[in-house]
């Protein structure tokens, strides 16, 4: 009884982070994700659609600093395709034979290679602010880990644009979003129905695009997720059996203690 009480208290103590800082906004609608649960995995078709949304919509303003073009192979692209995607972007070429990195104040560029990081839309944060009304579009490579709610949060933000309620004072250049802290977000609604045509023929609704890109960003933040969960199941299964054996051994060894 006391033991259970103690255990319950400790469990309660462990649950702290879960109860701290109740979110300010409304509750995020929970979505079903293929990567949820102990056997979760990434849906390769969804990953490719998500990449398409990211590349043609998000990447216009947001960087994904931690990702390399070579990582796209993990999404199901072939090496040749990753090479081709990389070649479509330009990155600073570095010093030429004369030791120059810039010509006429402009950086010398070259086509990207798989070993390059995914090219950012702006040269630096100042340029990003200058182009976005003073707001800095955050880097998206860790966004699902950097926000409470993860993929659900990203999906909610992307689909949470609404008319502001009567009497709400919206500042100039800001947009009303139900799920953003303070409800004022600098980013205008990025997704418009049918704005892109999915290569696999999926109907490009706002909800579909938001889901796909949220799933893609989850992979971007946790590319190890599948390997982690697969390994975890094997190790925990082994430990379960091994611990049961140890328990049997313990009882047997202790059977002569009086």
């Amino acid at each position: 009884m006391k033991t259970t009480l103690f255990a319950a208290l400790i469990a309660g103590a462990l649950a702290f982070p879960a109860v701290t800082n109740a979110s300010e906004g409304p509750k995020l609608p929970a979505q079903k994700w293929s990567f949820d649960g102990p056997t979760g995995h990434f849906d390769r078709a969804q990953m490719k659609r998500g990449w398409q949304v990211f590349k043609s919509v998000c990447a216009a303003c947001h960087s994904a600093h931690q990702l390399y073009y070579r990582n796209l192979v993990e999404l199901g692209f072939s090496e040749a395709e990753a090479k081709q995607i990389a070649a479509g972007d330009n990155v600073p070429a570095g010093p030429n034979e004369a030791g120059e990195t810039h010509v006429d104040g402009q950086p010398i560029m070259r086509p990207a290679q798989p070993s390059d990081k995914i090219a950012p839309p702006y040269a630096n944060p100042a340029a990003a602010r200058a182009a976005n009304n003073g707001a800095l579009p955050p880097d998206l490579s860790l966004i699902t880990k950097a926000r409470k709610g993860g993929a659900d949060y990203v999906h909610a933000i992307l689909t949470g644009y609404k008319e502001p309620p009567a009497g709400f004072q919206l500042q100039a250049g800001m947009n009303y979003n139900e799920y953003f802290a303070g409800h004022q977000i600098a980013m205008p609604a990025p997704l418009v129905e049918g704005a892109i045509t999915f290569e696999d023929g999926t109907n490009a609704t706002v909800d579909q695009m938001a889901k796909d890109v949220s799933a893609f960003l989850t992979w971007a933040a946790e590319p190890e997720l599948e390997e982690r969960k697969r390994m975890g199941i094997k190790i925990l299964a082994f430990l379960l059996v091994f611990t049961a054996l140890l328990f049997a051994l313990k009882r047997r060894i202790w059977s002569d203690v009086h």
Binding site: P17, L236, W254
Partner: peptide
């Protein structure tokens, strides 16, 4: 043997978090 059994139970919890909810405490 008693400590080894306790370690097994502990590892189930520790590795449970590590593999399935690694950012729970973060």
């Amino acid at each position: 043997v008693k400590d080894a059994f306790g370690l097994g139970v502990f590892l189930l919890i520790y590795l449970g978090f590590t593999f399935f909810a690694p950012n729970f405490f973060g």
